[in-house]
Design a protein around this nucleic acid. Structure first.
Length: 268
DNA sequence: TTATTCGGAAATTAAAAACA
DNA sequence: GTTTTTAATTTCCGAATAAT
C-alpha cells in the first residue's frame, strides 16, 4: 500500500508531460529521460478572482428565462463555439520557433537592453516556456521578435526552419517582412483576450514593442496610439503610485520603475 | 512489447460570501 | 473574527497513440 500523495510542485518537464513528479532535483523522470530538471515556471494564483467570478451566475441568469437574447449573452465568455465567432485567433503553429526567440532575445539583451532595461532575462525565459498556451506571453514574444526584426542592424534570421527554398535568408528586406508578419500575428492573437480590462505588465510591454514596430515602419499614427495605450495601462496598473511597488520583489520592482520612466521619456 | 502523449478527474488553493 | 462556498489552477491517472 503506497501513499499516492500529490507532490506540491512538479518540475517543468513533468508538468508539460503530465506525469507524476517526485519533486526532487533532478527528479526521477528527468534523470531517466536525460533532461535537465528545472523548476522555473511561476505558479499562477489560484482561486476566484474579481467580484465573485461570474461564470456560474451568468449561466444561471441565461438559463432562467432563455430568451433570444440569452443565447447572445451565453456566448460572452464561452469563446469556444458559435459559428460567426472567433475567426481563428489562435497562435500560428510553427511561426515563432525557439530559434527565432533565442536569436531575438539575444539581440535585445545585447543591443537594446542598455537603452530600454525593461525585461529580465531569466524571467523572460520562464515566460517563454508557457507561451504556447498563454496568449499574453505569446504576444509579448511575437511583439519583441517583430521589434527586433525591424531593427536595421539585425542580422538575417531564417523564419523558415533551416533550409529556405525561397532564398529569403539572402534577400534584402526579408527581416522587415518577417517583422511585419510577427507584428500582424501579435495584433491578431491579441484579439483573443481582453488586454485592457485586466491588464498585465506583459500587455503593457507588448504595447510598447508595438509602438517600436510601428515607429520603425514609419507608421507614426499607429505608433503613437500604441505608446498612448502603454501609458494608459501603466496608470491602470498604478505604476505612478509608489505603494504599488512594495508587492514586488527587487527585480520586478526595479524593472517596473524603469519601464515607467522609459514610457515618459519616450512620450517626451 | 515499451515509451510517450494528453484529456480530463481529482486535489489543492485562495478569494468571496455567509455566518456568529 | 471563523466557516463555508465557489472557482482557478494544479498534479497526475490512465487510455490512446507512437516508437521499438
Amino acid at each position: 500500500m503506497s501513499t499516492p500523495a500529490a507532490v506540491k510542485r512538479a518540475c517543468d518537464a513533468c508538468h508539460r508531460r503530465k506525469v507524476k513528479c517526485d519533486g526532487i532535483n533532478p527528479c526521477r523522470n528527468c534523470s531517466t529521460a536525460q533532461l535537465s530538471c528545472t523548476y522555473h515556471a511561476i505558479p499562477q494564483k489560484k482561486g476566484p478572482k474579481g467580484s465573485r467570478a461570474k461564470v456560474i451566475s451568468e449561466l444561471r441568469e441565461t438559463q432562467r428565462h432563455h430568451s433570444s437574447l440569452s443565447s447572445k449573452t451565453a456566448n460572452r465568455l464561452n469563446g469556444v463555439h458559435s459559428p460567426p465567432c472567433s475567426p481563428n485567433l489562435a497562435p500560428t503553429p510553427g511561426l515563432l520557433t525557439p530559434d527565432i526567440i533565442k536569436e531575438c532575445v539575444d539581440f535585445f539583451f545585447t543591443n537594446m537592453y542598455p537603452n530600454m532595461p525593461i525585461l529580465h532575462r531569466g524571467r523572460l525565459d520562464q515566460q517563454a516556456i508557457y507561451a504556447d498556451h498563454n496568449p499574453e506571453s505569446y504576444t509579448l514574444l511575437t511583439s519583441l521578435c517583430a521589434f527586433m526584426f525591424i531593427q536595421p542592424n539585425m542580422p538575417m534570421v531564417g523564419v523558415t526552419p533551416s533550409n529556405d527554398p525561397f532564398g529569403l535568408d539572402s534577400m534584402p528586406g526579408a527581416n522587415i517582412m518577417s517583422g511585419t508578419l510577427l507584428l500582424e500575428e501579435t495584433m491578431r492573437v491579441r484579439k483573443s483576450y481582453d488586454h485592457l480590462e485586466s491588464p498585465s505588465l506583459s500587455s503593457l510591454v507588448t504595447s510598447f514593442f508595438l509602438f517600436g514596430c510601428y515607429y520603425g515602419l514609419d507608421l507614426h499614427n499607429k505608433a503613437w496610439f500604441q505608446l498612448r495605450e502603454a501609458t494608459t495601462l501603466a496608470h491602470i496598473l498604478g505604476m505612478h503610485k509608489e505603494e504599488t511597488y512594495v508587492q514586488w520583489d527587487t527585480i520586478e520592482a526595479s524593472r517596473r520603475r524603469r519601464l515607467y520612466w522609459l514610457l515618459f521619456a519616450t512620450e517626451r
